[in-house]
Amino acid sequence: MSELFPRKQVMGFVFSLVLTAAALTVYFLDVSFAVGMTILLATAFIQAAVQLVGFMHAGESEDKVAIYANIYYGIAIALVTIFGTLLILVWDM
């Protein structure tokens, strides 16, 4: 806690920039839809995780379990909602 240099923050920032650059390949290179989506999903979720753990200190307090349960539950339901909606209204209509 007492170290002066914000190592975690700087690393997180550099990592975010690298991931953003990686995501940009789908724009600048000619990739197929499937490959492009895979890259985007990977970079987006890794970046979100970096923010969550590195910047937001999700795991530092005594309520770690509650916080992570809350986030995982939210993400699970969010994915169910998005993909369920797409299944109903687009893919299987």
């Binding site: 789908v26 724009y27 985007l40 999903l41 987006a44």
Partner: peptide, 10 residues
Amino acid sequence: IFIFSFIYLK
């Protein structure tokens, strides 16, 4: 990040 990836880049 999600808007950037899945609205713009996609």
